[in-house]
Design a protein around this nucleic acid. Structure first.
Length: 355
DNA sequence: TTATCTTTCCATCGTGTCAA
DNA sequence: TTGACACGATGGAAAGATAA
């Protein structure tokens, strides 16, 4: 099976708009509000309802049932007995799907088949309007074949069914994620001081200041800054070594500077150690000292975003060499896709918040 | 037997990221 | 700037399940 790489989905400008329900505050999405690649990240997200009886403790075990999609009541999951009775009484018409959802389906006569051939592979994306039509039609008991012939003649019934399944899975996961984020936020507020204090001690700042700087910068900015900072330090270190007889020795061991001590075990034995690396291995108890007191080649000031709250004047203690954290991304955060992964939270990074 | 639905596998495409 | 790579999205196909 080969598909022409150049085949693109047709523009949807010729499709009829969905009919807005009179008095409804929920307007239909017009074509110019939809981009057809990555559309779901920009289009208004539908509202999802789920069973209120769904228990918090079950979050990590199973996704709650999705009971509505953007206000459209969805049929309850069918049991085998319901299947049997519905088919017997309704002449194979599934009465569980015979639910009058809000909104109207586009008139069947108005459905315009795009001009490209159905025989060509239809690698078309689904717009928000398509999704709504699909869910509405399904909620009214239309079989896949009928639904496909009526509203999606350029797609197959199987494609419609799979799209429907994925929509339901996605919406369920979305709702689950929002509740999960609430839980993480709650725990974060309780543990944030513990989380940020080690880094704050290392750089000689208040933990609130360090937290604000990192939060405002974002993980991508921090990754980028850390990498460039490390590269710059290495470059300058090499240049410095060229001009000396003896290589520049990096401090190890106690310097007795009065700065907070971060035992190696705190970094080396936690999951966090797998996400960060320093220019040199951490060995033994290390006492950190602002460079200006030690007389080492001063690293550049800590890079800040434009909204960063750390001062960048010369009095700001820069991060000692061992404090350069280069974040190794084990999973690339996805920015514009609709998936919900890529969140970087203390919990997900495996920060050891126990004391 | 037929119709419908579900599950599973797999190939392809689009897009973002990263290193050279 | 470009190519390699990873990953999610999409849809075709086949097999199996279920009920009329």
């Amino acid at each position: 099976m080969s598909r022409p790489r150049s085949l693109q989905p047709p523009t949807r400008s010729g499709e009829p708009p969905l009919i807005e329900e009179p008095g409804s505050s929920r307007g239909w999405i017009t074509d110019d509000q939809i981009s057809y690649h990555g559309a779901s990240s920009h289009a208004p997200q539908p509202t999802i309802s789920q069973e209120p009886s769904w228990q918090y403790s079950l979050q990590s075990i199973m996704a709650p049932p999705v009971t509505s999609y953007d206000g459209i009541p969805l049929p309850a999951p069918r049991t085998s007995s319901e299947n049997e009775s519905s088919r017997a009484t309704a002449g194979y018409k599934d009465k569980n799907r015979d639910i009058e959802g809000e909104g109207e389906l586009p008139p069947e006569d108005d459905v315009v088949v795009p001009e490209y051939s159905h025989s060509a592979y239809n690698y078309g994306t689904w717009s928000a309007a398509d999704d709504r039509t699909l869910v509405l039609a399904r909620s009214r008991g239309k079989h896949w074949v009928e639904l496909q012939r009526t509203y999606f003649p350029t797609k197959t019934a199987n494609a419609c069914r799979k799209r429907y399944e994925r929509l339901m899975e996605r919406r369920g996961a979305l709702e689950q994620d929002s509740q999960r984020l609430e839980r993480i936020s709650h725990d974060y507020m309780a543990l944030r001081k513990q989380i940020w204090t080690p880094l704050a001690d290392r750089v000689g700042e208040k933990w609130e200041v360090v937290e604000a700087a990192c939060m405002s910068a974002g993980i991508r900015t921090i990754q980028s800054n850390a990498r460039s900072h490390t590269n710059r330090w290495r470059k300058e270190s090499r240049a410095s070594q060229k001009g000396r007889e003896a290589p520049l020795l990096l401090p190890r061991g106690p310097l007795n500077t009065g700065m907070p001590t971060l035992p190696t075990s705190e970094m080396g034995s936690t999951d966090m150690a797998g996400d960060f690396e320093s220019p040199i291995p951490l060995q033994g108890p290390v006492h950190y000292q602002p460079h200006r007191d030690v007389g080492l080649m001063p690293p550049p000031p800590f890079p800040l975003s434009s909204s960063g709250s750390l001062p960048v004047d010369g009095t700001t203690p820069s991060i000692p060499f061992a404090g350069y954290l280069h974040v190794k991304s084990t999973r690339r955060p996805v920015v514009s896709r609709t998936n919900t992964e890529g969140r970087s939270t203390g919990a997900e990074l495996g920060w050891n918040t126990s004391n």
